[in-house]
């Protein structure tokens, strides 16, 4: 289980990028973090995988993975966690893919490394996962450059699953996706959650998408938690949440004006 307690992160002793942030993420749970640009969402993700830039410091608070502070792990031990236990899907999925490998081979390599399978078995497993994430098997011999943005996101998801990730962190997975693709991705994430039981932390500024996937949404403004909205409980009482709600464009009954 991931636990964040009173986390505070500062860049070069200036105004804190994150202040007093607390939440816990269990396997099978999905939490969304919603806020405007610059609210601190990316800083949170970087803190969770320990890739904060050098001029950022965790001033106060704790991040616990399975009750052990992630800062107490050595770099080597934590490296083993990255990918195996905690996977991250960056905003630009292409950055996580090897442009020279066909995607099936890329995913199969993950199987071999993390689960010690032989080639044949790994390839078969990779094919299974490619279909699980909604890509047709015909695409398994494609290179990343031939895929669309949404398909690349799915490929990286498959790769993370193959590594056996218990938790997946997603950074703005909806960028570049039109509404149909967004709904489809949300459905996929829900499916993966059910089947594989992974815990998810989704950072996004698309409220409707996050709402479709997550049980809990943390509204972040300038590093502070403005509101926590839980499914089934009344929410959207803060000004920020209200603004986000209102900014979802409506087309009413499908007739213009």
């Amino acid at each position: 289980m991931f636990e964040v307690k009173n986390l505070e992160v500062r860049y070069r002793d200036q105004i804190p990028a994150l202040q007093n942030l607390s939440f816990s993420l269990r396997k099978g749970e999905a939490i969304g973090v919603v806020g405007r640009s610059g609210a601190g969402k990316t800083t949170l993700l970087k803190a969770l995988v320990r890739t904060l830039p050098r001029d950022a410091k965790v001033n106060k608070g704790e991040i616990l993975y399975r009750d052990k502070s992630i800062f107490k792990f050595s770099e080597r031990e934590f490296n083993r966690l990255r990918g195996k236990a905690i996977g991250m899907l960056p905003q630009n999925a292409q950055a996580s893919l090897n442009p020279f490998l066909k995607i099936r081979k890329f995913i199969a390599e993950g199987s071999r490394r993390h689960q010690g399978m032989g080639w044949k078995q790994a390839k078969a497993e990779a094919l299974k996962l490619i279909e699980l994430v909604g890509l047709e098997s015909a695409w398994s011999s494609a290179y990343p450059a031939q895929l669309s943005g949404g398909m690349r996101t799915r490929t990286v998801l498959a790769a993370l699953l193959v590594c056996g990730a218990d938790y997946i962190l997603l950074d703005e997975p909806t960028s570049g996706l039109d509404i149909i693709a967004q709904v489809s991705l949300a459905e996929l994430l829900n499916k993966i959650r059910k089947i594989e039981g992974v815990g998810m932390l989704i950072v996004s500024h698309e409220l409707p998408f996050v709402w479709q996937v997550c049980d809990k949404i943390i509204m972040l403004e300038r590093g502070k938690v403005v509101e926590e909205i839980e499914r089934g409980h009344p929410g959207f009482q803060s000004k920020l949440a209200r603004e986000f709600l209102e900014s979802v464009p409506r087309i009413n009954d499908g007739n213009l004006k």
């Binding site: 509404i179 979802v248 499908g254």
Partner: peptide, 14 residues
């Protein structure tokens, strides 16, 4: 048409 439907569906969820 599908795009329109999906958009309407989404706003009703919210």
């Amino acid at each position: 048409r599908k795009m329109v439907e999906v958009t309407i569906k989404r706003q009703s969820i919210l």
